[in-house]
Simulated scan of single mutants.
Amino acid sequence: MDLKDRQILRTLQRNGRMTNQDLAAEVNLSPSPCLRRVKLLEQSGALKGYSAEVDAQAYGLPVTVFVSISLTNHSEKVVKNFEQLISRVDQVLECFIMTGTSDYLLRVVVTDLADYERFVRNHLQPIEGIGSIDSSFVYGVVKKTAVFPLF
């Protein structure tokens, strides 16, 4: 991947709905080579798809919670079970495997505190092998972007 490919990806991260003509102008290419590069980026898997950024509050999910999970042990059975079950929960937007004091970090969206309690009781507590659940509620956002830095 070269600098021009990164420019294309970065521009599409800002606006995935732009036309190829506009994209080509933005990255200083003619339309045909630009489209060819986009197709190659799609085929290689570097460009995974296109989506809409939706405001969570307007959607009705104004509460974001980061949930740190520690497992009681790291046997293959416990890890696979946790990962399979958590991947099916719609409220979990992201699940990261972590180093440090916790094993996983989840980004969860819910309607309110009562909804979060239901989420914990119905989706987390029943999972065997969870040793601790630590919740941090977001009360403001300083920066949020999906646009990678250009290097």
Results as ranks from 00 to 15, higher is better:
13 Q>D: 03
94 E>C: 04
75 S>M: 06
75 S>W: 00
89 V>A: 10
112 D>I: 01
34 C>Y: 07
8 I>H: 02
37 R>P: 04
120 V>M: 06
49 G>C: 07
29 L>F: 15
114 A>V: 01
21 Q>R: 13
19 T>N: 05
65 V>L: 08
11 T>V: 09
74 H>Q: 13
88 R>M: 11
95 C>A: 12
56 A>P: 13
3 L>A: 12
132 S>L: 04
76 E>R: 01
48 K>Q: 10
64 T>S: 11
86 I>W: 09
97 I>F: 06
5 D>Q: 06
28 N>P: 00
74 H>S: 05
151 F>T: 12
118 R>I: 02
134 D>A: 15
54 V>A: 08
82 F>C: 03
93 L>W: 00
98 M>H: 02
7 Q>P: 11
111 T>L: 04
126 P>Q: 04
20 N>M: 05
11 T>C: 14
21 Q>S: 12
104 Y>H: 09
97 I>V: 14
6 R>H: 14
85 L>K: 15
91 Q>A: 13
61 L>H: 07
148 F>R: 05
142 V>Q: 09
57 Q>I: 10
123 H>T: 05
32 S>V: 13
78 V>W: 05
44 S>R: 10
125 Q>N: 14
22 D>W: 01
12 L>N: 11
50 Y>N: 11
143 K>V: 03
3 L>W: 12
24 A>Y: 15
28 N>R: 13
27 V>A: 09
